[in-house]
Design a protein around this nucleic acid. Structure first.
Lengths: 220, 220
DNA sequence: AATAAGTGGAGGAAAACCCTTCGGTTGCTG
DNA sequence: CAGCAACCGAAGGGTTTTCCTCCACTTATT
């Protein structure tokens, strides 16, 4: 979004943002093969404008991914500034990500992440990995505080956020919000440390970022 | 599925079952407006056969819903037979439902539930409500055992199961299974009783079945 | 082996979707 | 505030998807 974006006329930049916001939602709901016309419709702009700004689906997806990464980074910083403890930072972050539908779905689950797609902060993959690092520090800190359950990694959290944010079809927007909020609280409860001491420990081998990437590479 | 089904020829009944299985998956993935041809494709039958068995989308949806209810009931009985304690029953049930993609999405979240759709066990709505009763007894029992967290109702569990079972698009089937399993463990951890005693209690007003129905009625 | 029950593919109509062209509008600069 | 470059969206042609029916062929059942 670097200088490329800055030279845009005011209305154009506004539209571009609306497109990305709409695309974020639609992609989260329907996947990255969702009809582009639906995105244009929801952004309140003509289909031509979308094509002018993003020549094909691929670049739109990439840009949404970059945008998501940036926003998540910002939210992370903001949360870090608002809480002295890692657990506080983590829970605020999760709440915000869910609230903003910031499913990060692209950065985490995008096949062919390595190719092109570079914003001001470097490759898509590079930035994702960097964000992962930050998240890992955060989760480790929260675990050392004794607040975050052991054995949980950023992947768990990202995927959880995605599953939470993703609306159910048929159900309307309002109800979806309610449902998401309910499940969010349960999710946070599950992350809580003392659950570990419960009679039934987590029985599983955690997923790693590499696991994800490997599977995605195979699938596509 | 009463006598109506029984008089079907053997191959016809087999096909009918395949259709319902495929529809269950596709509906869970894409919602009840998913293309019927996709369902036929996945069931491995011709589109004509689908239309012959289910004249329109509405009846197919209803039949899938009935089928789901029946299966959930069976799994509940089976789980009850396999464990002496309510918590054991509950967790086995949840695992099975997720495993079978038995999202119950229809019975819980179907708009216009009251109209028609009666199987051998009565109205769709009636059977759903009855199942809810059973689940409520189960959850209450598990809470009295001190194993299930307070303030959790069957709605939480059903919706959780739906969100867990629902696959992410783009991602392949195998990876989706992994993701679901991971999140399932977290979910079960969140249900666990001792999490309640943690520093941060659930902050929320639980959803009720009536809430759901009311919203769905408004939306459609 | 006869027959009733069941099957899938072809295909026309309608809708959704992709993507471009172009006459008109609007932000920006001097 | 005029004039130009940047930007816009509706229209529409071409393609694909989806719906749903008809009908010649296959198969379970007796």
């Amino acid at each position: 979004m670097a200088e490329n974006t800055t030279r845009l006329r005011a209305d154009a930049r506004r539209n571009r943002e609306q497109i990305i916001i709409a695309a974020r939602e639609v992609f989260l709901e329907q996947g990255i093969h969702a009809p582009l016309e639906e995105i244009a419709r929801r952004a309140g702009i003509g289909i031509a404008t979308l094509y002018r700004r993003f020549p094909d689906r691929h670049t739109l997806v990439q840009q949404v991914a970059l945008d998501n990464l940036t926003l998540v980074g910002e939210e992370l910083d903001r949360a870090a500034g608002a809480h002295p403890d890692a657990w506080g930072v983590l829970t605020q972050l999760i709440r915000r990500l869910v609230e903003l539908r910031l499913g990060v779905i692209m950065p985490v689950l995008l096949p062919g992440l390595e190719q092109d797609a570079r914003g001001e902060g470097g490759t898509l993959k590079a930035r994702r990995d960097q964000l992962y690092e930050q998240m890992e520090q955060l989760t480790r800190a929260a675990q050392q505080e004794g607040r975050l359950r052991q054995g949980i990694n950023p992947i768990d959290i990202w995927l959880g956020v995605i599953k939470l944010s993703r609306p159910l079809p048929v159900v309307g927007a309002e109800l979806n919000r309610l449902i998401t909020d309910q499940q969010l609280e349960l999710f946070l409860g599950g992350l809580n440390a003392t659950a570990l001491d419960a009679s039934e420990p987590l029985r599983r081998q955690p997923l790693t970022l590499d696991d994800l990437d490997r599977h995605l590479r195979m699938a596509e």
